[in-house]
Simulated assay, not measured.
Amino acid sequence: MSTNTRLIHATPEKVWDVLADGWLYPLWVVGATRMREVDDDWPAVGARLHHSVGTWPLIIDDNTEVEECVPGHRLVLHAKAWPTGTAGVTIRLEPVGTETQVTIEEDAKLGPARLIPKPLRDLPLTWRNVESLRRLAFIAERRHT
């Protein structure tokens, strides 16, 4: 499992507000290019984000489903990205004073990506999630609710 952590200069509530707004997903998740639909009950368990990944003309429509949600603290997702497979993603928020330590853990769950040796799988996931956390920080630190 690839694990990345970043201290975000915003309260856990502000960070959660970004996570809870499914329409913001492609702004902070590297690889997501557009949102097609967000279930009304996002981020409740079973709710889905209907997104696209890739760049034109190679765009794949897929979805990400919530497996567990503890508002303000933890979000566990099952992300689809066929033809590579699916991934398990856990996002944890821990208060540090008025700031938030955000940790993303991700690994392939099903599909061809599982055939790649773990150290080789972790390299792109690490890069991707460092950048995703950077983008999440930009939004949470500058967003006014």
Rank of each mutant, 00 (worst) to 15 (best):
M1L: 10
M1P: 15
N4A: 13
N4Q: 07
R6L: 09
I8V: 13
I8N: 05
H9R: 13
T11K: 14
W16I: 05
L19Q: 03
W23S: 06
Y25H: 13
V29G: 06
V30Q: 12
A32Q: 14
T33E: 15
M35K: 07
E37Y: 05
D40C: 07
P43E: 10
V45H: 11
V53D: 04
W56T: 07
L58Q: 05
L58I: 11
I59R: 12
I60E: 15
T64D: 05
V66N: 05
C69Y: 09
C69G: 06
V76C: 14
H78K: 11
A79H: 09
A81S: 15
A81H: 07
W82M: 10
P83R: 12
G88N: 14
G88V: 06
R92E: 14
L93N: 01
E94P: 07
T98D: 08
Q101Y: 00
I104A: 02
E106V: 01
A108K: 01
K109T: 05
G111P: 02
G111K: 00
L115A: 15
K118Q: 14
P119S: 03
P124H: 00
T126F: 04
R128A: 13
R128H: 05
V130K: 11
S132I: 02
S132E: 01
R135C: 06
A137I: 00
I139N: 00
A140N: 01
R143D: 01
H144C: 14
